[in-house]
Design a protein around this nucleic acid. Structure first.
Lengths: 207, 207
DNA sequence: GTCTATAATGAGATAGAC
DNA sequence: GTCTATCTCATTATAGAC
């Protein structure tokens, strides 16, 4: 049995992903965990503190993804494998993205950490893209790469919310995940060289 | 002096754009308008109703943009002119985009209308792009056009929130508007033909 | 560490006088 | 149409027994 603290955080992640952190009351959290509301406040003196703790976890998970870029199965394309892992992670923590505006207002302290996180993520992606340019897989100027990084970041961050508001898809399946992934991929496609396209084709057949 | 009802809606648009519809209380609204809270409830019996009324206005404004696609100044490029007007409109009603997730939960009735709006908007954009393909300004398959439409829609809808959460830019200036606009434009750039690029150049010099 | 109570707040909303 | 007064209620949060 995990610790009560962990059970609280697990429950909150689920609840927040489903309904957003503001529609979820402390009473609901306690009920879900199966503890009393007073006990909840023993672990987290403010509701805000739960958000901080969850963000810590999120960061840790991101670090794992970022620091293990070479564990790809086929090994043929670390860039795409990285993107896929990163994508899945964002889905697991989707409430941070979906309710970003409201969270920012409630817990302004998270802002700075979030910026740091994006700084690093975008730097990672940019480095990866420039490397692909060097390898002759992509053909793009640095300015184009910068635009690409930002667009990829935005699509990745918001496609879940888009899917929900546009097509009433609240519960996302692996197929949807694929769709979003392709949507991001399509940003890079016009910049791929013949060599890059061949490699991508090999990857797809591999899956 | 506009009617009290209009003054309420004007004030709410401002307040909501600044702080989001949930951080803004009915007390604050009444104070801003300079009326009593009780009076506010004479016009809108539920806070939700204010959102509905604002959405009506938003739709009307969109209709104006959509139905007047030929009023472009230089007349050389209706597509881009349309995009610019549409972009500015989204900025004026940015809280609908930024706080979409939370609004959806509070006023589920808005969902359906929102979907309709997106249906129409995306159909408009697609038609416009296909027309540009026919005119030889763009080179893209229909599948590519579909991907483009969705990506353009997502970037347009969320770049403001991105700017805020990524760079702490809450107050957007015309320069930022330009930045976002270019970001969307960069999606189409790799698909432009030589003829299309020449036309775009003429447009830029015209401004 | 966990529970029972209960406080403290602050929001949305209403009734009825003017 | 506008205001005063008041209500209801959900929610966060605390104190103290077990």
């Amino acid at each position: 049995m995990p610790s009560t603290r962990d059970r609280i955080l697990d429950a909150c992640l689920r609840l927040f992903n489903d309904s957003g952190p503001f529609a979820v009351t402390t009473a609901e959290i306690a009920r879900t965990v199966g503890i009393n509301e007073g006990n909840l406040y023993y672990y987290f003196r403010k509701k805000e503190d739960i958000l901080f703790a969850l963000f810590e976890r999120f960061q840790d998970a991101l670090n794992v993804v970022a620091n293990a870029p070479h564990e790809t199965g086929g090994g043929s394309d670390p860039g795409l494998a990285y993107l896929e892992r990163w994508f899945r992670l964002m889905w697991e923590w989707r409430f941070f993205y979906r309710d970003g505006a409201a969270i920012k207002r409630m817990a302004p302290k998270l802002r700075a950490r979030n910026v740091k996180l994006a700084d690093r993520g975008q730097a990672d992606i940019k480095r990866m893209l420039l490397q692909m340019v060097e390898q002759g897989l992509l053909a793009a100027s640095e300015e184009e790469v910068d635009r690409l990084v930002v667009n990829a970041w935005i699509i990745s961050s918001y496609w879940l919310d888009y899917l929900d508001s546009r097509h009433n898809i609240g519960k996302v399946t692996p197929e949807h995940l694929d769709w979003g992934f392709s949507q991001v991929l399509s940003l890079f496609l016009p910049y791929t060289t013949k060599a890059g396209q061949a490699q991508e084709k090999r990857r797809r057949q591999h899956v």
